[in-house]
């Protein structure tokens, strides 16, 4: 992976800094009732790691690299898909009281 380092030094630092403040701002104002879904939601978001694992696997040149890359994609896909499903299931249940007559409790 002889990558051309285009996001060098300070550009990378700017990205990291702005992303860190973004995460801080998003969570900082959230009511406690959403902490569990949001933790699960942020867990889903770092499932993007699967994309990096795909890059590593597609560029694999030996069996060892293929095995590790395969494991990476497998684990990353599990992170992304699992994170999505459980977050969606949790958020699906949050309803305001004017809809309580619907009574559509999901049994998954």
């Amino acid at each position: 992976m002889d990558l051309a380092t285009t996001l060098t030094g300070f550009v990378a630092l700017y990205i990291f800094m702005l992303a860190a403040f973004t995460g801080y701002e998003i969570i900082g104002r959230v009511p406690a009732i959403l902490h569990t879904p949001l933790m699960s939601g942020s867990n889903f978001v770092h499932g993007i790691v699967v994309v990096g694992a795909m890059y590593a696997l597609l560029n694999a040149t030996s069996t060892v690299e293929q095995v590790i890359g395969f494991a990476g994609v497998l684990l990353g896909a599990g992170n992304a898909a699992g994170g999505y499903v459980v977050t969606e299931r949790m958020l699906e249940m949050f309803k305001p009281s004017d809809r309580k007559g619907a009574g559509d409790q999901k049994k998954a």
Partner: peptide
């Protein structure tokens, strides 16, 4: 986020660092 830098992939860098700081605060 760190592996995103290694791969020069801004999507990983941003998503990883957002979760890193949000998770730390949480």
């Amino acid at each position: 986020g760190f592996e995103g830098y290694v791969l020069q992939n801004p999507a990983l860098m941003i998503a990883g660092m957002v979760v890193g700081s949000a998770g730390t605060l949480l």
